[in-house]
Structures are given as structure tokens and as C-alpha cells.
Design a protein around this nucleic acid. Structure first.
Lengths: 150, 150
DNA sequence: GCTCAACAGTTAAATAACAAACTAATTTTA
DNA sequence: TAAAATTAGTTTGTTATTTAACTGTTGAGC
């Protein structure tokens, strides 16, 4: 690995961290400005449920890259805010079926525009080609890690 | 924003999350395999201190993109592990000067190779051009967010 | 049919992040 | 120089993540 490649790898990691933090901060500020009492992580759950009304916890966890313990916790918090409901699956009693409450469903129309703005922030001033290259780079790096970790 | 651009923006965010998690997991597994009782976040602090032996907390916080409250907490944990020392700055008593202990310095030679491996994972099978494009994309997105948030 | 492995979810303990309010020290400025 | 603003760090409360151990349920193979 050449010295400049190494430097760029380090910069890559730094910039990735900064972008992640900045996007979270952007959404947090939106929530605060509109008195919506949820976090970025809760939004990830809600966004999934807006698409797929009913499912078990593991399904959500897999979709949004979290483990099931985090989901237990997140759904407790969403339940406390009256945004989701947990019911036992009578078909397979290991499952808890998660559904949105009316309140949870109603948030969709308020928040979706902010999500679209966030997607816009990712795409703005970035050519389609550069975006695709970056995507491809992520995929390569991800594979590199999977291979190394066996 | 075209539909496919939007899709790619969403994929970009998903892949970025996955890469971040995978890299953290990779390092965690290294620490565990070698019985080194630190976290990825503590490593960020140590890595900075290996370069710049002595500084105050705010300087570290800025360099590794954390807030000062997180640093208070992280340095408590590093201190408990006997890896860093906090001393009051007699020049400006608002500052706490952070230095590595012998034990903290000794970790450098053990851990640096793992860091280099991590940089390698980012650069492996990625052309210099693609890496540079990705870097540039991050910078553009970061600027987009800064501009939108005023 | 029983046993055992696999699966879904919970819990507890440790670590981390963020916001807001706070203390103490220093610098600015009027 | 006295008051005000700024800066460094801590504390508190809420939220999130990870690991590991745990409970309960289901299903496969003998």
C-alpha cells in the first residue's frame, strides 16, 4: 500500500465518520425544530414500518442493521411514545408482531419530506457516476472485511 | 432528483452504515482475540495520543470528532485502565493535560499493525481513482449538509 | 414421541453519545 | 478594573449498542 493510498484510506474513514454524524445531526435538528420526540434510530424503525406495516422484531433488526437486543430496547422506547404496538404471534409464539399505532402512521406524512431532503443532501452536487463509484467502493470494502474476518 | 439517484442515495447510506459497523466489529474482534481491553472509541483517543503525546481534552475531542462530554467519559475509562493520566495545566487551570502512561505507550507497537490492516481493508481492491472519488463525494456531501444547516 | 438444535425475544452490565445546565478559570471590553 | 463573554471540563438524564446469559417456543431427526 503506497503512502498516499494509506493517507486516503485514513481520510476516507475520517470523512465517513463526519458525514454520518452530520446527517444524524441534521435529522436531530429537524426533529427538535418541529417538536418531534424521536431519535434517528427510532426513525429507522418507523421508516421500515411505513413500508411494511407488520412484522416481527428480527425482521426489522436485519433490515436496519441492528441486533435484536437493540430492537427490544428501541421498541420499548417507541411503545412508550405510543408509536408502535407489540402483540404476540398466535401462529408462532416466539414472535412478537410489531404494528404502527395511528400516531405512528400519522408521522409518515410529516417526516417523509425530511427524509427526502436527507437523500437530497447525499445526491446534491454529486454526479450519478461519482455516487455509483462510491457505492461500489463501499461494497468492495465491505467484501474485504467479510473475507478477512472469515 | 431522479428515482435511481434517490435509490442510490438510500443505498449509499445503507452501505456506509454497514461498512462502519463492519470495521468496528473487525477491530473489536482483534482486541478480543488478543485480550486487549479497549474499545474502538478508546483506540481513537490512543491513536491521537501516540502522535501527539500531550494535549488538553478539547484538542482530542476536536481531532476525533467527539464532544467534550464524551471525552470526559472516555478518559475516565482510559484512566481506569491505566492508559492515560490527567494533570492540571498550571499555565491555564481550565485545561487538563492528558498524557499516556507507560502502559498506554506500549500498546502502540501491538495495535499499530492492526490499524494498518484496517487501512488496508479500506484500500484493498479499490483503485486509487475510486478511493479519491469516494473521498471527494464525502466532502461534497459534508458541504451540502453544512450549507443546509446554515 | 423425545431429544436437541435453532430461533425469537428479554435482560443485565459495560460502554458510548448528546443536550443542557453547571463550575471554574481566563480573556475581552467597556 | 469591573462586568460580561468565552473557554475547558464535569455532571445529569435520556438514548443507543454490544456481549453474554437466559427463557420460551418450534421443528428436525432419530
Amino acid at each position: 500500500m503506497s503512502k498516499s493510498t494509506r493517507e486516503n484510506a485514513i481520510l476516507f474513514l475520517q470523512q465517513m465518520t463526519k458525514v454520518t454524524l452530520a446527517l444524524k445531526g441534521y435529522m436531530r435538528q429537524k426533529f427538535k425544530a418541529h417538536n418531534v420526540d424521536i431519535t434517528f434510530e427510532m426513525l429507522q424503525v418507523l421508516r421500515f414500518l411505513w413500508e411494511k406495516e407488520s412484522c416481527n422484531q428480527q425482521e426489522i433488526a436485519t433490515a436496519i442493521n441492528k441486533d435484536k437486543a437493540s430492537l427490544t430496547y428501541l421498541l420499548d422506547n417507541l411503545g412508550r411514545r405510543n408509536l408502535v404496538l407489540r402483540t404476540e404471534d398466535s401462529q408462532d409464539r416466539r414472535n412478537k408482531i410489531i404494528t404502527l399505532t395511528q400516531e405512528g402512521r400519522e408521522l409518515e406524512s410529516l417526516i417523509t419530506p425530511w427524509l427526502e431532503e436527507m437523500y437530497g443532501l447525499v445526491a446534491e452536487n454529486v454526479s450519478a457516476g461519482d455516487l455509483a463509484t462510491s457505492l461500489h467502493t463501499f461494497e468492495t470494502i465491505y467484501k474485504n472485511i467479510q473475507n478477512k474476518a472469515e
